[in-house]
Amino acid sequence: MSSLKGKVALVTGASSGIGAETARYFASLGCYLSLTGRNEANLKTVAEECQQNGLPKDKILLILADLGSEEDVKKVADKTIEYFGSLDVLVNNAGVVYPGSIETFTLEQFDKTFDVNVRAPLQLTHLLKPHLIKTKGAIVNVSSVNGVMAFPGVMTYCMSKTTLDCLTQNSAHDLAPHGVRVNSVNPGVIKTAVHKRGGMTDEQYAQFLKKCERTHAMGRPGNVDEVAKVIAFLASDDSSYVTGELITIDGGRHLLTVMAPEKTE
């Protein structure tokens, strides 16, 4: 993935989880970074880690933003182009999740979920399209296995990720004649803070991770680096003939319609 060296990438939701690891990995490959997130302290820490991975400080732009805000999304696009003058890679990673079923969801949660998980990637893709066309760049949307199969208790999140997958394939079709590729990664359970931010207690999260031993064919949840490396592949010239794909990185979660037997050790 040496083709990413010297390229400019915008990574949303870069202050934690998959976004933070993607930033660190891109930095190790020499990719210039525009990083956005809501937690300023975490964002600065990620920037320091990117420098430790060999990326000069002046090749890292930090933008504090809430992608639930239309104005902040535009700010992210404008500041990125103003600072770097071009864009090669857009990684739409920022996402939120709220618990809720058809009986318990709220319209407020629905709106907040779709604002961040769907509208922001759509808006950024639209705003940055001219710049990506100039560089014949790539877009990677961070979706979820929740986009390709149903899960109880997170209905609006599942709906948002299915819609994001639709955006991936439709924009891939529209942008292919311009040389821009668009793909999606659809992780299973990855060990990040997103579930706790969605309302899980430490005990609930521990039980959730334990359950993954039975719900994922490989018998474990995933790690952020396992997703970041696939994102980098899709962003690089190594995947030059790949577009419109939804790539599950889920340890075989989508293969199981029932829980696997408990391990006997």
Results as ranks from 00 to 15, higher is better:
L175W: 07
I63T: 12
T215W: 06
I133T: 00
S144F: 12
H131K: 14
K112D: 06
A14Y: 08
G179L: 11
R24Y: 05
L209M: 14
G137C: 10
M1L: 06
Q169H: 04
H254E: 14
E21H: 01
G222P: 10
V46K: 04
K75Q: 14
T257Q: 13
G188H: 01
M149G: 00
H126F: 03
G198W: 09
D115R: 09
K210W: 05
S239L: 00
S171V: 08
L246A: 13
G85S: 10
T106Y: 03
N53K: 14
D238V: 06
K7Y: 08
D202G: 01
E49V: 06
T113Q: 02
V89T: 14
L175F: 02
H126W: 03
G37Y: 05
I247D: 13
M159I: 13
L90I: 02
G37F: 01
V230L: 15
L62K: 01
G153Y: 05
C31I: 07
A138Q: 06
A27Y: 11
I102P: 03
E226Q: 15
D78T: 15
K211F: 08
V148P: 04
Q123K: 11
D250N: 11
L33Y: 04
E213Q: 15
L10P: 04
A41G: 05
I247Y: 10
R220C: 12
L164N: 13
V96L: 09
G137A: 09
I231L: 10
L90G: 07
L55K: 04
M155P: 03
T106S: 15
T135H: 08
G251K: 01
E70D: 13
Y241M: 15
Y32F: 13
M155E: 11
H216S: 01
K191V: 15
H216Y: 00
N170V: 13
E103L: 10
R197Q: 14
A217Y: 13
C50M: 05
T104A: 10
Q109E: 14
L107K: 12
T104W: 08
F151T: 11
K57S: 15
G30L: 12
G188M: 04
I81Y: 06
